[in-house]
């Protein structure tokens, strides 16, 4: 965990209401783990805003993808390159890469897709052959289709059928064969549907990333608690990633 000022390199729209925020900082930073998140201070908002790390480089650069859904993200969207943002980095447990898996499936719903991009890169680097299934409402909301496709086999679903397969990620998951690990991030309804539909995998091989409204993002305030099989956990610190075995719906 580190508190650092980053400089905005890019803050551009990449799909309907979705922006890509590229950041750099002067100091060398410890690279994040896939599935970790950062907490951004936005002028005019008291609490920080949690956003997953989508991608990073060796020089401390970070890429975040975010959707404008309310006041904070709308303010963030008005920031310009060259401006600086105060960010708490290195938060959460992130995904644990299952080393013995060969064919992991990545399931992303809407702005649940960003952390899966960094994960896909890491999996490819580990010699695995991931399949990414990314679900959106409609074609104009689709982002990072080509970026994912450049890394691994990628399937797009849209609820209205305007791009890719019509339906939800769970429909495309049914057709997916022989996957031996599963990593999911998206709305809770999607995670729940995946949880109930997926076949049993070895313990720890199915990992779900959760969202909660947060106060601090680093474990101090207890506003993000979640009941799990292993007792109460803080989504910001003990999560956001929980294994299938830990989850209580």
């Amino acid at each position: 965990m580190e508190l650092t000022d980053y400089t905005i390199v890019e803050n551009n729209r990449i799909a309907k209401d979705v922006l890509r925020l590229r950041l750099r900082c002067v100091a060398q930073r410890e690279p994040p783990r896939p599935g970790q998140f950062v907490n951004l201070k936005i002028d005019g908002c008291y609490l920080r805003r949690p956003i997953s790390v989508c991608d990073w480089d060796d020089c401390g650069g970070l890429t975040l993808l975010y959707k404008v859904v309310g006041e904070g993200t709308a303010k963030l969207a008005r920031h310009l390159p060259g401006e600086s943002l105060n960010i708490l980095t290195g938060l959460g447990n992130g995904y644990t890469i299952c080393a013995q898996a060969k064919r992991p499936v990545l399931l992303g719903g809407g702005v649940g897709a960003p952390p899966l991009y960094g994960l896909a890169k890491a999996l490819v680097r580990a010699g695995q052959r991931p399949l990414a299934i990314l679900g959106f409402n409609t074609a104009e909301e689709v982002f990072y289709r080509n970026e994912f496709a450049a890394l691994c086999e990628t399937k797009i679903t849209t609820a209205d059928g305007s791009l890719g397969q019509k339906g939800f990620v769970t429909h495309a998951l049914k057709a997916a064969e022989d996957y031996d690990a599963l990593y999911a991030c998206g709305p809770e309804a999607m995670l729940r549907a995946v949880y109930h539909q997926m076949p049993p995998l070895a313990a720890g091989q199915a990992q779900f990333s959760f969202e909660r409204r947060m106060g601090c993002g680093f474990g101090a305030c207890m506003v993000c608690s979640c009941r799990t099989v292993a007792g109460y956990k803080r989504i910001c610190m003990d999560g956001p990633v929980l294994t299938r075995e830990e989850i209580v719906w």
Binding site: G215, V223, C224
Partner: peptide
């Protein structure tokens, strides 16, 4: 949950003594 909300210069919590 949710146990947290905010306004421009402060926050609301309803942790409830966890």
């Amino acid at each position: 949950l949710p146990r947290v909300a905010e306004c421009e210069a402060g926050m609301l919590n309803s942790v409830g003594l966890q």
